[in-house]
């Protein structure tokens, strides 16, 4: 398989803030025709300090963040909106807290009206213990929102069949969970995530369940186009440090996924040449004396 090779000549060049001498990033995330240089999408929930949130968002390098829609409370909403605007971060309103397609539709319409965007992260939850997606309502809501002109980012289960159906219904991106929201359990079914990513023709965003940086990197290595996370950063002991870690993890995972990893093998494979070794006192220590493992050679395994 030929692995598409990004232009790596500029070194770590995703950082538009610290790498001003180099041109546009060569490997953008394209969502609904919009190019983003960061493949990390951040949620904004979980931090009581807006100041820390702002620092964490900046450290993450994100260019797209989710927000929830709730009743206006004086002195509350303006500051988050202003924070995102002054940091030039796009807003992706979600339908968190909706249990039916009907609720999700109304919330999406309100988000479009309030935030002047057709983009919506569609979340339809089955119950509050698991917060797992109700895929029946989700498919219904996706179809209706697409018909109303929304760009739907569908938060879904890690079921490849459902992911395919969402794509067929016109979802702009499919966002399977790694694990239930806020659990930090990582990616419970890597095989399914890889299957979803390999079959999708729309961007796949690993959404929910990430606990630490290696899991974000794994999501990208499995073929996801982006990672969406909130709690892993906002509830970390040091949110800004974790945001930095996630930024690097997503970038590293993306590079690794495109670099063409070596196949896993059971036997060691020396990286130093055997020829030209220095002489030892045994003049003819035959190869037969070298202890060997008792596994079948790679390629001859059952």
């Amino acid at each position: 398989m030929t692995v598409p090779h990004p232009d790596l000549g500029h070194g770590p060049n995703r950082d538009r803030n610290h790498d001003p001498d180099h041109g546009p990033t060569p490997d953008p995330l394209v969502l609904d025709g919009t190019e983003l240089s960061s493949r990390l999408i951040m949620g904004t929930g979980g931090l009581s300090s807006l100041h820390t949130l702002e620092q964490a968002l900046e450290a993450s390098g994100t260019e797209l963040t989710t927000v929830a829609l709730r009743r206006y409370a004086p002195g509350q909403g303006d500051s988050l909106f202003a924070l995102l605007e002054r940091n030039d971060i796009r807003i992706l309103p979600n339908t968190a807290g909706c249990y039916t397609a009907r609720d999700a539709l109304l919330t999406a319409e309100l988000g479009r009206e309030a935030l002047e965007t057709d983009w919506v992260k569609l979340e339809v939850i089955a119950d509050e213990d698991t917060l797992l997606p109700d895929v029946v309502e989700l498919l219904d809501a996706t179809e209706q929102l697409v018909a109303r002109g929304f760009t739907v980012f569908a938060y879904t289960s890690d079921d490849p069949a459902v992911a395919r159906r969402l794509e067929d219904l016109g979802a702009a991106a499919v966002m399977p969970l790694g694990a239930p929201i806020g659990t930090g359990l990582g990616i419970l079914n890597p095989h399914n995530i890889e299957l979803i990513a390999s079959r999708a023709s729309v961007p796949v965003v690993l959404d929910a369940g990430i606990g630490t940086a290696s899991e974000a990197a794994l999501a990208m290595e499995l073929g996801c186009d982006a990672v969406l996370l909130a709690s892993a950063v906002t509830r970390a002991q040091d949110p800004v440090a974790m945001a930095t870690a996630m930024r690097h993890a997503v970038a590293a995972g993306r590079l690794a996924a495109r670099a063409g990893r070596i196949p896993a093998r059971r036997h060691a494979h020396a990286s130093s040449p055997m020829a030209g070794r220095i002489d030892t006192d045994a003049p003819d220590a035959g190869a037969a004396d070298v202890p060997r493992g008792d596994w079948a050679p790679v390629g001859e395994r059952p």
Binding site: G43, T44, G45, G46, L47, L53, T66, V67, A68, L69, R70, R71, Y72, Q76, G77, D78, L80, F81, I91, L92, P93, N94, A96, L110, G111, A114, L115, K121, E123, A230
Partner: peptide, 10 residues
Amino acid sequence: VEIITAVQGG
């Protein structure tokens, strides 16, 4: 009447 706005979330 509901008046809603963006809050931290998701």
